[in-house]
Design a protein around this nucleic acid. Structure first.
Lengths: 150, 150
DNA sequence: GTCCATGCAAACTGTTTGCACGCGC
DNA sequence: GCGCGTGCAAACAGTTTGCATGGAC
């Protein structure tokens, strides 16, 4: 990925932005991680390489990278955001609203929906996130008192 | 909806919770609104009927209602959450990551995906949200400098 | 009467911003 | 050298929480 003669730098220049060591580090760190990271976890990892980087810079870099489409931001309703480099496989989330557990899954239907929308509206779709909510199987069993459902 | 002899109260009792005027008001207000409301907007509307209700109670009520599945919470990455009563038609979002514009749309594919997952994992799916990100048509045109895309 | 829910205000967390300096270009 | 990007610390917004009172059951 970093074999090319600075493709990343070109990407930045195309948008009239500067490629700083910090921004590159934030992106590379996120790409190296296979999972969603929140800002602070990312901050911790990034500091291993650059102990002087500030949390504010991590946030500012993330915003820039998000605007460039190099990073995705998700809010799963936990009060803070998670970030990931969209190269990872597009996984989606089922969230149990009772125990808060998150189950990742995948389906081609989302890609279909994205393609459909892109065609209809003329937009460019670069990220897709499906979030299902409900009750997971364990929680369904231990429904507090009764199970007066349907 | 409110013709029945307090079905809502029963719902609360089934979970060992108390139905207070505040909680009922929060839910009814949210149901009466056809759109997503953030906590403060909801607080404003609710105060029209009960000027003494506190913002904290609105938040606490929203959490309870969310846990009961009567209210959905969305975070569109604006730093705060939006809430809605899931009776409204299931609409999804395309978010332009450049101008922040949100386009609502609908597709049956999401329902398919939900049904699929419910069958596979034995979960109960009560809410579905698809969030696509990318660049909207206007923003695609005015790509800052050049359009070196594919 | 019991205990949960409320109102108030203060605390907290995640994120943003003003400023002076430093560095990419 | 110019101007954007950085580090620091303070500010900020949204949300949560401790405590005493009030109300649902």
């Amino acid at each position: 990925m970093s074999t090319e003669p600075d493709k990343l730098r070109d990407l930045f220049h195309e948008e009239g932005r500067r490629l700083t060591p910090q921004r590159r580090l934030v992106l590379l760190t996120l790409e190296a991680s296979d999972q969603h990271l929140d800002a602070e976890a990312l901050y911790d990892r990034v500091r291993l390489r650059d102990p002087d980087i500030s949390l504010a810079t991590v946030y500012r870099s993330l915003r820039v990278l998000r605007e460039m489409g190099l990073v995705e931001e998700h809010s799963l309703g936990e009060g803070h955001s998670h970030y990931e480099a969209p190269r990872s496989s597009p996984h989606f989330h089922f969230i149990c609203r009772r125990c808060g557990d998150v189950i990742e899954f995948d389906t081609p239907l989302v890609e279909q929906a994205a393609a459909e929308l892109a065609r209809q509206l003329g937009v460019r779709v670069t990220s897709a996130h499906l979030r299902l909510g409900g009750t997971c199987q364990p929680c369904r069993s231990q429904t507090r008192n009764h199970q007066t459902d349907a």
